[in-house]
């Protein structure tokens, strides 16, 4: 039994009395998320011919990879009870910096990518340090980060810059063929890897467990002598890294940099995290839930594309409705637990 307790696994019911015992207060929202995803996917598959083709599912992963990568980092921040609003504009800023470096300054793409990843991690740590040492509200610090990123991005270039470098072309075409099923694109692979690393971090490292502890009760975590300040800084650094990685995925995926990319992405990511079963107040949630949350919004979007007659803005309406339902569900759970 080498898994953390109170995870959504039947290990919790080792005495094996009730089959549904693993459905406790913290796992229930996660189970609901999975159920909603399965229902939506099955319904869409039955309704639209061709929806059930494996390639549609694989594209779901690839198309939403940059949102997903950012959302995984954000999950850690939200687990501590914080928030990071800068992830969306970090994607825009990162992508335009990569494009400009590669196309205008003729920097090698690998170096450009490493530079942007370092920048994202540094800015994230900086915001984390402000939150840690000056006890500033994360909402405001990362809002400042949002404006900063967007401003710098637009300063670099107002227009979208296409990336012609052959390496980018190769990367965007790369993928693992899966026989008849189609192929898994590189961006989807990165997304799944980030999710896997996120799950490992959250479940099997002290950093991950302290993240949960801070969100559960920061006061208790302090009195327990846990490294609260360091971990808080760490989650913002992680989120900064993830949003920078998301900008790389975006640049490869579109073969372009655009300072205006990712506008509102931070809100999509927050929605995916919350629908994935993570409480906005922190302490409860799963990285795997965020993966499913991202896929739920992806399915809705794809289904509306398949429909063809509906305006794509219906995606937003469906997302809003779903989000409301989920926070109502969480509130109801919370009430009952009290």
């Amino acid at each position: 039994m080498r898994r953390p307790p109170s995870q959504p696994s039947p290990s919790a019911s080792r005495k094996g009395k009730e089959p549904l015992r693993f459905l406790n207060r913290s796992t229930f929202p996660f189970a609901a998320t999975v159920l909603v995803f399965v229902l939506l996917y099955v319904a869409a598959s039955l309704h639209y011919t061709g929806f059930s083709r494996p390639q549609v599912f694989l594209n779901l992963l690839a198309d939403n990879a940059f949102v997903g990568v950012a959302a995984v980092g954000l999950t850690f921040v939200i687990l501590t009870g914080g928030i990071d609003l800068s992830v969306g504009s970090a994607v825009g800023c990162g992508s335009i910096i990569i494009a400009t470096l590669v196309e205008k300054q003729h920097v090698h793409p690998v170096i450009a990518i490493l530079l942007v990843l370092a920048m994202g991690t540094t800015v994230g740590s900086g915001m984390g340090a402000l939150i840690r040492y000056f006890d500033l509200p994360p909402f405001l610090v990362t809002l400042a980060g949002l404006f900063l990123y967007r401003g710098i991005g637009l300063l670099v270039s107002m227009e979208s810059v296409s990336i012609m470098h052959p390496l980018f072309a190769r990367l965007s075409m790369a993928g693992v063929p899966l026989g008849d099923a189609g192929s898994l694109q590189l961006s989807a692979i990165v997304f799944l890897l980030v999710v896997a690393v996120g799950i490992y971090l959250s479940r099997h490292t002290t950093f991950g467990r302290v993240t949960y502890a801070i969100g559960g009760s920061e006061q208790s975590a302090l009195l327990m002598g846990l490294p609260v300040g360091r971990t808080k800084m760490g989650v913002y650094a992680l989120s900064g890294f993830c949003s920078a990685l998301a900008s790389v995925v975006y640049a490869v995926y579109t073969s372009a940099g655009n300072a205006n990319a990712g506008t509102g992405l931070e809100l999509d990511a927050i929605a995916a995290v919350v629908v994935g079963g993570t409480l906005l107040s922190g302490g409860t949630g799963y990285v795997a839930g965020t993966l499913v949350g991202v896929l739920i919004f992806g399915v809705i979007q794809t289904a509306i594309t398949f429909q063809g007659t509906l305006s794509s803005w219906w995606t937003k309406i469906a997302a809003g409705t779903l989000l409301l339902l989920f926070i109502l569900l969480q509130r109801a759970m919370h009430r009952r637990a009290r």
């Binding site: 490292t205 502890a213 009760s217 208790s220």
Partner: peptide, 25 residues
């Protein structure tokens, strides 16, 4: 002063979690 969402075991051991190969045992 405990963390309600974490397990009994984790609340006792957190901060001194035994590790093997870098991951929590």
């Amino acid at each position: 002063n405990l963390i309600p969402g974490l397990s009994v075991a984790e609340n006792i051991m957190l901060g001194r979690l035994p590790r093997r190969w870098g991951r929590i045992d």
